[in-house]
Design a protein around this nucleic acid. Structure first.
Lengths: 131, 131
DNA sequence: GTAGTTGCAAACATTTTGCGTTGTT
DNA sequence: AACAACGCAAAATGTTTGCAACTAC
């Protein structure tokens, strides 16, 4: 018993949110996206931002980076990659290291059915390291 | 300019919360700890659980696993180790793989000041994999 | 006696949802 | 015409905090 197909209709709001997300490397929060997208769609509501981020995630166009107490972040780059989180300022940066499938293989050897992994480095980002 | 020293007084609540946390491998949420610890301290409040988890984390006795929208989890095992998160039931299990310092070294070579990393595998846990 | 700790309840911050309306197909 | 998506505001969720009473030292 599969879920029924869901036909999507396009909307200016969804396209604008995706465009903003793809135009930045900052891994913005929902609130940041709301602020940015409202420059072009002033009546855009925050609820619509959240709803569309869900839809875009389901479509595989957006990565939802869940972060505990801090606000969640969103990433328009859906290729497998790692992040660096700054302990000082909270920024999320891309980490230019290749994905390591051997980690998944090692985990699978322990008897887990593994789909993938998430790897976040933490420390002090270049900007915050400056004296 | 460092923060001033803070003298701690012991409390039954804090000891009970730590005892519960150390007695399980389930990486409980604050609410689970509240429920469990109330078996012995019926008037224990959820606020006290959160306050003590903060204190215990600051003391280095507890690991706070921040998880985005899902409730945060807590771990009485503070040695560096990895987790497996089940996509189906949400359980958090320990992953018996050694910590890989070479990942931090690779990240440091990219110019980051790295303190460590967090690695979560995801997939289907043994219990949910059973037919 | 001093200052950390508690229970309680109210406050917070973020995310989700219900509803009547609008827009896309 | 059907129904996805909208804006808005209210609700839900998880966590934090103010305060007066209590407790360890």
């Amino acid at each position: 018993m599969e879920g029924i197909e869901r036909s999507r209709k396009r909307s200016r709001q969804r396209e604008e949110i995706l465009a903003v997300l793809r135009s930045t490397k900052e891994h913005p929060t929902a609130a940041m996206l709301h602020t940015a997208a409202r420059r072009r769609i002033p009546r855009l509501s925050l609820g619509t931002v959240y709803r569309n981020l869900d839809v875009l995630e389901e479509m595989g166009l957006v990565l939802h980076i869940r972060n505990g107490n801090a606000q969640d972040r969103f990433d328009g780059d859906v290729s497998p990659h790692y992040h660096f989180v700054c302990d000082a300022c909270g920024a999320v940066l891309d980490m230019p290291l290749p994905y390591r499938p051997e980690l998944d293989e090692a985990a699978a050897r322990e008897g887990f059915r593994v789909r993938g992994h998430r790897l976040d480095f933490h420390g002090t980002c270049p900007a915050c390291s400056k004296p």
